[in-house]
Amino acid sequence: MEVDDSSKPPVKLPQKRFYRQRAHSNPIADHSFDYPVRPDDYDWSQHYPTIGDRRVEFADIGCGYGGFLVTLGELYPEKFALGMEIRVKVSDYVMDRIEALRKLHEGKYGNIACIRTNAMKYLVNYFRKGQLEKMFFLYPDPHFKKAKHKWRIINAALLSEYSYVLRAGGLIYTVTDVKDLHEWMCAHITRHPSFERLSDAEVKEDILSEKLLDSSEEGKKVTRNNGDKFVAIFRRI
């Protein structure tokens, strides 16, 4: 017997105005998170119905409202990408957005997911050594005050963790509209022995180079405001 679904409300994408939250969150504060003791303890099938024995290979750190994460899902249908977002309402929005997209487009977007967590503290709880192929840091919080520079998502200590979870040849992508932060990130990553910066020609050849600028909601905002955008990509040696 066929089921009449005509009485069910149509699936709609969530609206950001119902998920508003302050732009920044203190990554050092004690937030309440559930996280695995080790990567082997985590059940990825709760986020990716078809993942099986495969693993997440892309990590969008501070994924915001998920615009770039959705782009990753579309460009790399055979890869599993994870958005990691610390803000409660923002991560709720991304989760609801992905759920709606899956219902609207049967068979698509099963390769992207979002979790609320603090990547500065718990990254290695989720990913094994050399697991990731790509990591993205798009428009991270600049933490302008010098006393808060230690909160920046790119720093010497965290880069050692990023080099641990990235495979040889894996890439770190950085984008910001703040020149000082761009110079900070480039200086710290270049000084780290595990990374080398891609040349301008290599950046231009990367399929994601243009997507980095405008796929995210923050990138679109910068474009509307005629702001500058600074891009740098680094290879795990």
Rank of each mutant, 00 (worst) to 15 (best):
H24P: 02
N26R: 11
N26W: 09
P27K: 03
P27R: 02
P27A: 01
I28C: 00
I28Y: 03
I28S: 01
A29Q: 07
D30L: 14
D30M: 12
D30P: 06
H31K: 11
S32G: 11
S32N: 13
F33N: 12
F33E: 13
D34V: 06
D34L: 06
Y35N: 07
Y35L: 07
P36L: 06
P36W: 02
P36M: 08
P36C: 05
V37A: 08
D40G: 11
D40R: 15
D40F: 05
D41N: 06
D41W: 06
D41I: 03
Y42S: 11
D43M: 14
W44I: 08
S45W: 04
Q46N: 12
H47P: 03
Y48K: 13
Y48W: 12
P49G: 05
I51N: 01
G52Q: 09
G52I: 12
G52N: 09
D53W: 04
R54D: 03
R54C: 01
R54G: 03
R55F: 08
R55P: 03
R55K: 15
R55T: 08
V56D: 10
V56K: 06
E57N: 11
E57V: 15
E57I: 13
F58G: 04
A59F: 09
I61Y: 13
I61L: 15
G62A: 09
G62W: 07
G62Y: 02
C63Q: 01
C63H: 02
C63G: 00
G64K: 01
G66N: 03
F68R: 05
L69N: 09
L69H: 13
T71F: 03
L72M: 15
L72R: 09
G73H: 02
E74K: 08
E74M: 08
E74W: 04
E74H: 06
L75R: 15
Y76K: 15
Y76I: 12
P77Q: 02
E78Y: 02
E78S: 07
K79F: 06
F80V: 09
A81Y: 06
A81I: 05
L82R: 13
L82E: 12
G83F: 10
M84G: 04
E85N: 02
I86R: 04
I86A: 07
I86T: 02
I86H: 00
R87S: 10
R87M: 06
R87I: 12
V88I: 03
K89N: 15
K89S: 14
